[in-house]
Write a protein that binds this DNA or RNA. Sequence first.
DNA 1: TCATAATAGGTGTATATACATTTTTCTTGC
DNA 2: GCAAGAAAAATGTATATACACCTATTATGA
Lengths: 149, 149
Amino acid sequence: MINRNDMSGPNLSLCANANLRKAMRVVSQAYDAALKPSGLRGTQFTLLAVLDGHGELSLTRLAELLVLDRTTLSRNLQPLLKEKLLAIRRDTDVRVRLVAITDAGRARVAAATPAWRASQARVEAILGDDRFAGLLRDLDTLTEAARTD
Amino acid sequence: MINRNDMSGPNLSLCANANLRKAMRVVSQAYDAALKPSGLRGTQFTLLAVLDGHGELSLTRLAELLVLDRTTLSRNLQPLLKEKLLAIRRDTDVRVRLVAITDAGRARVAAATPAWRASQARVEAILGDDRFAGLLRDLDTLTEAARTD
DNA sequence: TCATAATAGGTGTATATACATTTTTCTTGC
DNA sequence: GCAAGAAAAATGTATATACACCTATTATGA
């Protein structure tokens, strides 16, 4: 077996970025496919579930929780607002917009949760409990390291 | 310390999709920032480096190598073609388009490689060698499992 | 009190991503 | 040799993502 990466160039099989993105693509596709009957993408499920767990949050605070750019969050909210799964109101400080999940949003999360659990179970079955836990630890370590520098 | 996830809803701190995407975001931002002086995004560096390692490839074959949707690849190629870092020609089977890196593309990869190495070193320093190797293994296991089902 | 800082959020632009569909070309079976 | 099906790629549409920049409002300090 010839390894052409013994040559001078970057060895992409060791690239954290390339491999994270690749795994993200296939995993996200799996979650998206499983969630499709519920009418949610994986990213949307995440957003709704966070807001189901917390109460009303400002966009800035929600972006911090998700480790997501504020402008990205702004745009990710749009389809969920259009479907009235989320609602936004102004705070007394009128600069601040508070977003909260609606009853319809809660119902949607509840309807989607079995599909989410099945996707979770599939990943856990592939890796096994120990590697799955280790993966979550590693991802969190990377996120925290980047977040705090 | 109250754990509100003891309640009925999905515990997102265990969500493979949410945590993979979150880590992907922060890691990609770090690579993008490091590569910025070279004028490449992380994704573009990956694409060029793959084509630097292999010769001419059809879009379908390249998409398979990257575990990337063919239509996504088509679009990701556009900025690199515009900058003439890649070139496309037709095969004898005129349905097939073969893409290859240009001399300018090779030069760009070479110029960007030190920044890529620095980003790699940073991730390895954060996780340590063992966890880094384990992470790559886990990501590959997930990718292969999804790719082959 | 008012000028200046800081903060919250949105817009413009560009890339990344994939599904559904379409067009073009090739292959295959008869 | 041709019709039916397979294969390669592009397009239409929608979401995800972030940077640079802008606007509106609030906080601060002399």
